[in-house]
């Protein structure tokens, strides 16, 4: 460091220094970084257990320095339920994409939320199946072209995009549900606050928290990272509006 300067920002310590496999500009990197920052700030790296999904983030256990368990496809919240019930003093979070949480794991998601399990769910919604080659997901927008909806999603045939956050907010035992983004600096700061709040709620035993990230997938949307975030802002935000969907009653 040069003399007379102070450190403002550095790589969080819980983010393991390895090359990650994410595509350039992928939101997963930023969300991993935010989780690592929050875990560092709360000093809970030895008390946190993550549950990794199937999807692009399947190797998340290689990147954040906490204990991890790998779940079968979609079953992360069922596994997290078990972990939290056996270790109620640990912080338990799942990290899932829309294929994992909103498609194959819908049952586990809805019932974990309905039971009000005291876990944090980090949900990355990029409106597509990233890992398997850009197929249509339940969250794919109307008219959006994917490899399995080459003419765009048609609502009459394929149903409307599922708003998981709004759906779960209707269940009486969910505690804190919010929708965030990391598409710009302001969003990153707000998202970090939301994650921190969710960990604090878990410590206080408040119950089920879900932080949804409206994310991008530059590779499968066939865009540059900058274009993908512009597309996110233009098309995703109107359908998936940012902000708290359900806040705790004081």
């Amino acid at each position: 460091m040069k003399e007379g300067y102070e450190l403002i920002y550095e790589r969080p310590k819980s983010l393991i220094k390895v090359h990650n496999h994410y595509c350039p500009g992928c939101t997963h990197g930023v969300v991993h970084k935010l989780l690592a920052e929050v875990i560092d700030e709360l000093g809970i790296e030895n008390e946190t257990i993550g549950v990794a999904p199937v999807g692009c983030a399947v190797l998340a256990y290689d990147y954040i320095d906490v204990d991890w368990q790998e779940a079968a496809h979609g079953r992360a919240q069922a596994l997290a339920t078990g972990i939290k019930r056996m270790h109620p003093d640990k912080y338990v979070f799942t990290y899932q994409g829309d294929g994992d949480l909103a498609a194959i794991g819908t049952a586990e998601t809805v019932h974990a939320a309905n039971r009000g399990e005291n876990i944090l769910v980090v949900f990355i919604n990029n409106a597509i199946y990233g890992m398997t080659g850009g197929q249509m997901a339940p969250t794919t927008l109307e008219g959006q072209k994917t490899s399995t909806s080459p003419y765009g999603r048609v609502i009459d045939d394929m149903g409307a995009p599922v708003k998981i956050a709004d759906m779960l907010a209707l269940l009486p035992k969910t505690y804190y549900i919010t929708r965030q983004t990391v598409a710009d600096v302001k969003g990153v700061r707000a998202a970090k606050k939301a994650l921190k709040k969710a960990f604090e709620y878990q410590k206080a035993g408040k119950g089920y928290c879900l932080v949804e990230f409206v994310a991008n997938c530059p590779s499968n949307w066939k865009m540059t990272p900058i274009q993908s975030f512009e597309w996110t802002k233009e098309n995703m935000f109107p359908y998936y509006p940012l902000g708290d969907v359900k806040t705790p009653e004081e």
Binding site: Y9, V30, D184
Partner: peptide
């Protein structure tokens, strides 16, 4: 630190004059 916040690969370290 705007650049560092949005960086998906945590590449950037930021310093500021005291």
């Amino acid at each position: 630190a705007s650049c560092a916040l949005v960086c998906p690969d945590a590449v950037i370290t930021v310093y500021r004059q005291k």
